[in-house]
């Protein structure tokens, strides 16, 4: 009897296990294997040669152009994550609170409007942003109308880092030399996102906020109204009710949104591919785009696979950090 149940259980889960195995587990194991080989991907896998940890060594330890490019991609993506995740989380929460308000008229309209960018194809949105940010695009037209003189900035061609620009206003033109980490000087690490990358970040916030707003909305509607009322009777003002009651109750949703945000932002590819191809001056190069460039344009699939695994570890670390920060304290 027990035995029969076991067998039935395995049989019922077999299709799913088979599917996951073939399409998820096998590729991951294979990619891990490829990351320890030199493979051009222009001939069958059998022609590849084992190179030990060389691919990882080139990316992380040996100074050279491979390491510098990888360091640049990590720096760019780090600023991207630090900018996009807080912005999209805060904005999504704000929008969710607004469309959840009891007194708001036309709730359905706003919910649809805020969610709309999320269901639009990311490539289509990317092209619209190219037009918006082009020298004779809407952004410059609006700025020209608001500011004295004409603004003809080529936004997607601006490689100067935002923090460098701010430092420039304060009269700091270059940092102390040295402090070289992975081929980039401390000054280069502290550049901040370039103007071009900032445009991509705005795009990312705009397209993802809707989805996360829905999650927050679901979280908000799960909070029993009695709690809010009880706080009200206890004399808490609106601000206290939000930060002391609503926000703590939203913690699970917050964890989910930030986790998904971290994973999504560390893997940014399609917007970069459509808008900037890693330029200007490599300031929008990200690990995911580098995987594509190395694997499909530079015929170094082994190195591309190694980048994928390092990226995987980076995402794990960031998710663990985030869990540590947001853990229940008591």
């Amino acid at each position: 009897m027990r035995r029969g149940q076991n067998l039935a259980g395995w049989l019922f889960t077999a299709p799913a296990i088979l599917g996951l195995g073939v399409f998820l587990l096998a590729p991951i194991i294979l990619a891990l294997w490829v990351s320890f080989r030199d493979w051009s991907a222009l001939a069958p896998l059998g022609t590849s040669t084992p190179v030990g940890v060389k691919n990882y060594h080139d990316l992380l330890v040996r100074s050279g152009i491979v390491q510098t490019d990888f360091a640049r991609s990590l720096r760019n993506n780090l600023y991207y994550v630090l900018g996009v995740v807080p912005a999209q989380t805060a904005l999504a929460l704000l929008l969710a609170v607004i469309v959840n308000a009891k007194l708001l008229r036309g709730k359905t309209f706003f919910r649809t409007a805020f969610y709309f960018p999320s269901v639009t194809s990311s490539i289509a949105v990317a092209f619209i942003f190219i037009f918006l940010f082009s020298p004779n695009g809407v952004i410059n037209a609006v700025l020209s109308a608001l500011l004295p003189g004409t603004v003809d900035t080529v936004w997607l061609n601006e490689a100067d880092g935002v923090l460098h620009i701010i430092a420039g206003w304060l009269g700091i033109e270059s940092g102390p030399s040295g402090g070289n980490i992975m081929g980039l000087s401390a000054w280069d690490w502290l550049s901040g996102p370039s103007i071009a990358l900032t445009a991509v970040m705005i795009l990312a916030v705009w397209t993802t906020t809707g989805t996360f707003m829905l999650m927050f909305l679901a979280g908000l509607q799960n909070i029993p109204e009695e709690l809010d009322e009880a706080a009200l009777i206890d004399g808490a003002n609106a601000r206290q009710r939000f930060f002391r009651v609503t926000l703590p109750m939203l913690r699970p949703t917050l964890v989910l949104v930030i986790t998904l945000g971290l994973i999504g932002t560390w893997q940014v590819f399609d917007q970069i591919y459509a808008m900037t191809s890693g330029g200007p001056q490599k300031t929008t190069l990200t690990p995911s785009y580098l995987i594509y460039r190395e694997g499909f344009e530079n015929s170094a699939m082994g190195r591309a696979a190694a980048i994928a695994f390092i990226l995987f570890v980076v995402i794990l670390i960031f998710t663990a950090l985030q869990r540590l920060v947001l853990r229940e304290r008591d």
């Binding site: 096998a26 590729p27 490829v34 893997q267 940014v268 590819f269 995987i291 594509y292 990226l311």
Partner: peptide
């Protein structure tokens, strides 16, 4: 999605890859 996409591509390559 990115990582999985490439892994998937790699596996597809292997599965087809019975060398002719």
């Amino acid at each position: 999605m990115g990582t999985h996409k490439w892994l998937f591509a790699a596996s597809a390559i292997l599965l087809i890859g019975a060398p002719a």
